[in-house]
């Protein structure tokens, strides 16, 4: 399958996880990894599966590299109804009130323009005991398997 990993990052942690997911999926799939800040919202390709990796910053806001993307989506109002995506969040439960609000906002933004979410939006907690990749890599395998059915053999 053709997969694009898109990361929204502020500290670089989401970028590192996106690179890990890219490395993990590359054995069996054609995977590219890009910063959300460089993604043109009109360039989404229905033949590709999009995996978004996003953190939260400040008062539950999108991280720095996702903000230009959100603004571009708001301006371009793209029709994403043929686009399938999954989303993984990075957060810190020390900031309980805004925990994982960034990825939630991003998922809502995609859905608001018709994009279809595959799988659950799950979140890693930086104040928890496990490593993000231990949670994200099995999740990525699962959402890719689910996406294969949705996108069909054409992908």
């Amino acid at each position: 399958m053709k997969i694009t990993i898109l990361y929204g990052t502020e500290t670089g942690n989401a970028e590192m996880l996106a690179e890990d997911i890219t490395a993990s999926l590359s054995a069996e799939h054609e995977v590219e990894c890009r910063n959300l800040s460089e993604m043109d919202p009109r360039a989404f390709d229905p033949a590709r599966f999009y995996i978004l990796v996003c953190s939260t910053y400040g008062e539950g806001e999108l991280p720095a590299s996702a903000r230009p993307f959100a603004e571009a989506v708001a301006a371009a109002r793209p029709d994403l109804s043929a686009i399938h995506f999954a989303i993984f969040g990075l957060g810190d439960s020390e900031y309980a009130e805004t925990f994982n609000h960034g990825p939630k906002r991003l998922a809502e933004l995609m859905a608001a323009h018709g994009a279809r979410q595959v799988g659950e939006r799950i979140a890693h907690d930086a104040s928890g005991g496990d490593l993000a990749e231990d949670l994200a890599l099995p999740w990525a395998e699962a959402v890719v398997a689910a996406a294969r059915e949705r996108l069909g053999e054409a992908a």
Partner: peptide
């Protein structure tokens, strides 16, 4: 010391 989440960027620097 109780903001371990903020220290998580250390993992990037280990790499």
């Amino acid at each position: 010391p109780d903001h371990q989440g903020t220290k998580a960027v250390t993992r990037q620097f280990e790499r």
